[in-house]
Simulated scan of single mutants.
Amino acid sequence: MTQAMRRPPGLDDGPVYLDYNATTPVDPRVAEAAMPFWTGQFGNPSSAHPYAWEPRKALGTARAQVADLIGARPEEIVFTGSGSEANLLALRGAVLAAGAHLVVQATEHPSVLETARALERLHGTRVTVLPVDHHGLVTQEALAAALRTDADRTVVSIMAANNETGALQPVTELAELAHRHGALVHCDAAQACGKVPVDVGRLGVDLLTVVGHKVYAPRGVAALFVRDGVALEPVVYGGGQERGLRAGTENVALAVAFGTAARLAAEDVAADRLTALRDELHHRLDAALPGRVRLNGPAPAGRRLPNTLNISIDGTRGHEVLEAAPAIAASTGSACHSGVHTGSPVLAAMGLGAERALAALRLSLGRWTTRADIETAVGALVTAVSGGR
Rank of each mutant, 00 (worst) to 15 (best):
A288W: 03
S84E: 14
A175M: 09
T308M: 13
G315F: 01
G194F: 03
G10Y: 03
E355N: 13
E176K: 12
T383F: 00
T209H: 05
A62V: 10
L352T: 10
A48Q: 11
V66I: 12
L295F: 09
V132A: 05
S338H: 15
E108L: 07
V378F: 07
E323T: 11
L365G: 05
R29H: 03
T24A: 10
A288E: 09
Q3H: 12
T209P: 10
V346K: 09
R121Y: 01
V236R: 15
R284T: 08
A357R: 15
G14I: 09
V226E: 00
P298T: 03
D206N: 12
K57D: 11
L352Y: 08
A90Y: 03
L18V: 09
V346C: 12
A270K: 02
F37P: 04
Y51D: 15
G166Q: 03
M5T: 15
L174T: 06
A217V: 02
G388Y: 00
V211M: 06
T128I: 04
L309H: 09
N162Q: 11
W368Y: 15
A58F: 12
E173K: 14
E85Y: 00
T24C: 13
L96Q: 12
V269Q: 09
T209F: 03
E250D: 13
G333E: 06
L89W: 07
T249D: 14
R284A: 06
R148D: 14
F37E: 03
A34R: 12
G99Q: 09
E164S: 12
L102H: 11
L365E: 05
P50W: 08
D19I: 01
N87R: 07
A175V: 05
T383K: 10
H319A: 15
Q105N: 13
R126E: 11
V185R: 06
I374F: 11
R126A: 14
P290H: 07
V226P: 00
R73T: 13
G343P: 04
V235I: 09
V16L: 03
L11Y: 01
A118Q: 12
T260P: 08
G166H: 04
G238Q: 05
A325F: 03
V156F: 06
G124M: 07
H134R: 12
G14F: 11
L358S: 07
R63T: 10
H186W: 07
L245F: 01
G343L: 10
L224Q: 05
T316D: 07
A67S: 09
E120T: 10
V16Q: 02
T260V: 09
R121S: 14
L224N: 10
T149Q: 11
A325C: 06
H123R: 10
M1C: 04
F225S: 01
R243P: 00
G302T: 05
G244F: 13
G204D: 08
A257N: 08
R219E: 15
E164Y: 05
E141Y: 00
